[in-house]
Design a protein around this nucleic acid. Sequence first.
DNA 1: CTGTAATTTCAGAAAATACTGAAAATTCAG
DNA 2: CTGAATTTTCAGTATTTTCTGAAATTACAG
Lengths: 189, 189
Amino acid sequence: MPENLTPMIQSCILHFGEMGSRWGINRTVGQMYALLVLSKEPQCADDITDALGISRSNVSMGLKELMSWDLVKLQHRPGERREFYSAPGDVWDIAKTLIEQRRKREIDPTLSTLRNLLIDTPANDAEAYAQQRMREMHELIELLTLWTQEIQRLDSAQLGKLLKLGSSIGKVLDMKDRLLGSNKKESTK
Amino acid sequence: MPENLTPMIQSCILHFGEMGSRWGINRTVGQMYALLVLSKEPQCADDITDALGISRSNVSMGLKELMSWDLVKLQHRPGERREFYSAPGDVWDIAKTLIEQRRKREIDPTLSTLRNLLIDTPANDAEAYAQQRMREMHELIELLTLWTQEIQRLDSAQLGKLLKLGSSIGKVLDMKDRLLGSNKKESTK
DNA sequence: CTGTAATTTCAGAAAATACTGAAAATTCAG
DNA sequence: CTGAATTTTCAGTATTTTCTGAAATTACAG
């Protein structure tokens, strides 16, 4: 990356490139996205090429990937041939998209695979045990997914307030404890 | 995988191998762990070698990796040279470990990188903007981390009850809404 | 101790992934 | 339409990651 970026911005981009590569997103795509997030102005493909010092075609493929994740917005400028790309202005929107996409691509297929494997009657002890574990996994993944879906409903304003509440996050979960304590009321509904 | 496993168990192992590779865990390590999770009896290295049809040395490295993630328990049998490996019996324990380790390895370093980059005063407009985004990222990641830490406090029994509550998960978050609506009470505490 | 059963290490091979440049395709101002 | 500006595609190359077999190390039953 032999380029025009300030060291501060460069460090951040490098870090997220690294992180991306640990999460199944390739390094360069991670860097590209970090660049877009940190840039006020929408960037065109050549801007990215210059900033990161990678080939034009690589940028093209990376943008395609980011589009497929629905992580970038595309802007036409009147009387301009080029397209400009930008990331959502709100980091929570970005996170929600990431969670959502990740769910579609990994969680849903996993749940469906597990369900399919749970249909058959076990042929022996080993299978019976394995199925039990699969059932537990399915249950757990479904539960965690439900939770994150609830949280995803929040808009960033609500999330902001929640943040201000600080440690009273614990309070919210205390409520839950109360629910857990006497959950009889639920069944009468 | 030309081996002794039943098709059902094999499918599950293959699926989690695939998933692992999308999450920065290599395919074989993912398969190895799936095998351990699905097996009632602890397995020795050669069992794994046979079941997955990979080299003994690969198994050794994979187990080392799984140990470093603290995902496997090791058992000595009296009068036996070999070691036997197993996964925790409770899937929620497994998930908690995964979350925990992931946090240590990726989230914490990211937060610390961001904090470091936020110390310096911005040299120009671009940096000022970038820092603002970094601040938002830091805030969001910290918030989400706090939440997951709260959830991690639950033991599997509590989680089980929570699951039984089904859709009333939404209720818990309604509580939160009430908090958000009038959070004046908080400040008087 | 000793010998053997087991594990770990590691250099190099194999496989998978990422990247590039050149060529093809697309888009739109004129 | 035309053609210049821009983007996309893709075959080949480079890089990274994973896997293996052989050798070195370790652990312990006897």
